[in-house]
Design a protein around this nucleic acid. Sequence first.
DNA 1: CCGTATATTGCATTCGAATGCAATTGTCAT
DNA 2: ATGACAATTGCATTCGAATGCAATATACGG
Lengths: 348, 348
Amino acid sequence: MAKTKSDTDAQSFLAKAGRRPTSYDVARLAGVSQSAVSRCFAPNASIGQAKREKILKVAAEIGYKPNALAQALISKRTHLVAVLISSNTNLTYPEVLAGLCASLTDRDMRVLLFSLRSESDVDQIIHQIWRHSVDGVIAAVRLSDDQLAEFARHRIPVVLYNRMASGGGAGSIRCDSAQGERDLVTRLLDSGHRRFGVIAGPEDSYVGEERRQATLATLAAAGMTDVPVVRGDYSYASGRAGLISLLQEQPQLDAIVCGSDMMAIGAMDGARQDCARRIPQDLSIVGFDGSGPAMWESYRLTTIRQPVNRMTEASVAMLMERLDDPSVPAEQRLFSGELIIGESARFA
Amino acid sequence: MAKTKSDTDAQSFLAKAGRRPTSYDVARLAGVSQSAVSRCFAPNASIGQAKREKILKVAAEIGYKPNALAQALISKRTHLVAVLISSNTNLTYPEVLAGLCASLTDRDMRVLLFSLRSESDVDQIIHQIWRHSVDGVIAAVRLSDDQLAEFARHRIPVVLYNRMASGGGAGSIRCDSAQGERDLVTRLLDSGHRRFGVIAGPEDSYVGEERRQATLATLAAAGMTDVPVVRGDYSYASGRAGLISLLQEQPQLDAIVCGSDMMAIGAMDGARQDCARRIPQDLSIVGFDGSGPAMWESYRLTTIRQPVNRMTEASVAMLMERLDDPSVPAEQRLFSGELIIGESARFA
DNA sequence: CCGTATATTGCATTCGAATGCAATTGTCAT
DNA sequence: ATGACAATTGCATTCGAATGCAATATACGG
């Protein structure tokens, strides 16, 4: 009985078990060539029905799984996507990461994660990305033109998340900071706010700068050019400290525009606890992101919600499209943020 | 002049540029064998000083970087660590991930991330881990005994993060839930609380169950056996809803023990906004994790802080130790949480 | 100047799977 | 039964780097 023989061999293999089974092991036990085994695990490969079943049976018995390294080496497809993100980004970090991970997994891709302490750390890990021959890159950090050009030259698709594609070649998915800040500031102006302060993100953060500039531009268009700005690092503490220092300099401020929800929350606590202001009666504070904590009862921030799920899904979709057909031109997609009216700002 | 020739060749190579340079390309341009190039990038390899310099120069010129796939295939070392974590875990998710990433990067390891929707999704991705021949696994999700045994059989070190190593072979790093809940509950008992309610995590979360059991055990030891328990999913909303439903059933409760900070925060908001309770005068609420938001002014949770940074660093250290010497026996390290006295609980 | 010890170097093979090509088998119409 | 044609199958090679072994070069003591 063939079954008996096969079982015995399989068991003797498992007994050794010092080594993971290879396609040659399966081939030997099933009495076929290595090519046949390989074809069994490839779609559209030419292989007979009977043979296929025998091979799959043996493979299952000894627990054979194709070695991704060998497959990648010969086929030039690693199914790896490098995901670059800076740890301190903001409160949406987990949501972004989970979203990207889920979408990539759904498309049979794996995530090689690079979580940077700050956006400037890219240079130190960029060569690891090259060494691992990733199929694509999704970057929520700033990449230099040289780095982007290098990826383009090697036909490695890059999607920038919430960064502008400065050079050429890279696609991008962004939430419209300019629009968002304009919505917020306009609304504040319409409700009679006249004395603005800004708590911006760190200089080396792309979105931080983008939001700061958008805010100041909108204010400038309304004739306000002398707006005090302090910088935070996106942390709660820096938001709180930022607010205190703003109010110390100019106690009469009536609206604070923050570069992120987290800093806005810190600012609210600073205003209430440290500066004896009522929100929103004495002082309006707005954030950006629309993260979970912004909706918490004690804060109810007025902010802009980024459509994170749609953005992560779109990032992966864009990457895959360019992977499947490198001739697809780079695209820039801009998502509108949704204005969330909370209770942290006094609106007419 | 040798330089001229080398430059020309290098430039002609870069001109083609359809392909990443290999060790053979470097060898050809430098007029040496492929082996020599390989030895140039290996530590302790036997290679002459002059030759090494020439090779490194050419390599730099054409931008050669050793292909990690080929290296891994032959050397059986991928420098990849699979990190398994469930997205909804809790507020410490970003901190844990960033910590692991940083420690692993410091040790020349890369992170293959698997962010699961829930702990039960492991089965669907476990075979991907095998296919990629990771050097080790750090899991913040529950692994079955079979899965652990399989890793052990193939000498792949596994470190469980905040999970008990049920079978054998795997090491573990945990924060002492039992101790933590005992500290909290004892303190509440000492301050006169007598009517407890529990908002626990989901059933398929290991830490959730651990904390629930520890809480109930401590209460049982004090003679309280009929404690109402509701389950949440670690979200703010579930904490808030959980509190409302607890108070609807038993309005006289005076202490709520929550399975995580996030749920505790939701519970605080529920108590204040939906149930007209003052905290901590009318009702004490405690959490677990010691995450950032727990310290925010509006909540000031009384909770247990996990030493996340020390735990992630220890996880990686333990993994590396077992990687370097597989004979090192598995170890279970239990870190004490730190009791944080906030203002969400009335203490005598 | 020679022999021996040591440091370099290259050759050939290896890791595990995919694939072009040629050989083989099977199917079907005539 | 036979030829034409399609579907299977195996052989041999390939991907890119690491490494044991043998060959060569260098150093050094006498």
